[in-house]
């Protein structure tokens, strides 16, 4: 029963025109980046990972995801979360599901699963396209790390897979909080606006060093630390901090969404 519900949820998400457009947009990012670096003259493309992109196609997926995590991926996660509960309420389909009946906790689980599955799919898709585009435009001679060492292609793929999981988890954490918002309203746009505003405000707040007491509470603080995947050997402390931070958001988001759903009149 639950597997067919989960399957139905993912199929439903994949059938949305909006989802397809979003995925198409996401896939363009690594292609544009690879092409851009390929055509650009001179040295590497700038600070951080961008500097080691040249001739290092395997880094494209990491760079793409790292870049997209700041805005694009939270946006996509918020859209899925918004459609998941607020959108269903708007179309009147939430009532149908509840009367079927699907228990409210199960419904939240189904929605969370859909969000996770689609996030993983989107991130993996970006990574795969990134590997292909990066290899095509920039070449593939193993993966050069920020530490100046060169990993074999197999090691590089492992790093990419690890990064895909980390990024997906961050995305799901954002999505879980968006789901909590989604459970309170019938307007998907409100959910997206609230989520994106928070992400942007968090990032702005992160710039003020006078607010450094606040920074450890902001999920966006954890984003840059994920770049450590590109160091060799990988230092795990920042990565685990970021992941724990996202985990806290996931717990809070899911808990609030559950409370709201269980007490909600539909």
């Amino acid at each position: 029963m639950i597997t067919r519900q989960l399957g139905s949820e993912v199929r439903w998400m994949l059938r949305r025109p909006r989802t397809l457009i979003g995925l198409f947009g996401l896939v363009l990012v690594p292609i544009v980046i690879s092409f851009g670096i390929w055509t650009a003259d001179g040295d590497g493309g700038g600070p951080g990972i961008a500097a080691i992109l040249r001739g290092n196609g395997m880094v494209v997926p990491i760079f793409t995801l790292f870049l997209s995590l700041n805005l694009l991926l939270p946006l996509v996660a918020s859209i899925w979360a918004a459609d998941g509960l607020a959108g269903e309420a708007q179309h009147g389909t939430l009532r149908g599901l509840l009367v079927a009946p699907v228990s409210r906790v199960r419904l939240l689980f189904v929605k969370l699963f859909g969000l996770t599955a689609m996030s993983l799919f989107a991130v993996t898709l970006m990574a795969v396209v990134g590997i292909i585009a990066g290899t095509a435009f920039l070449g593939n001679d193993g993966m050069m790390t920020l530490s100046g060492t060169t990993l074999t292609t197999a090691e590089g793929l492992l790093r990419i897979a690890f990064f895909v999981v980390l990024v997906t988890f961050q995305m799901v954490a954002v999505g879980a909080v968006a789901l909590a918002v989604s459970a309170t309203t019938e307007h998907p746009l409100v959910v997206q606006a609230a989520t994106m505003t928070s992400i942007i405000v968090f990032q702005v707040l992160g710039q003020f060093s006078s607010l450094d007491w606040l920074h450890p509470f902001l999920i966006t603080t954890g984003f840059p630390g994920l770049v450590d995947v590109m160091r060799d050997p990988i230092p795990f402390d920042q990565i685990s901090d970021s992941t724990l931070l996202a985990g806290c958001y996931l717990l809070i988001g899911t808990g609030l969404a559950a409370i709201r759903l269980v007490t909600k009149d539909s």
Binding site: P216, L251, T254, G255, I259
Partner: peptide, 12 residues
């Protein structure tokens, strides 16, 4: 659910 929220907040 409340315990989950609390755990998350404590973790933060």
């Amino acid at each position: 659910a409340a315990a989950g929220v609390l755990t998350g907040a404590t973790g933060l």
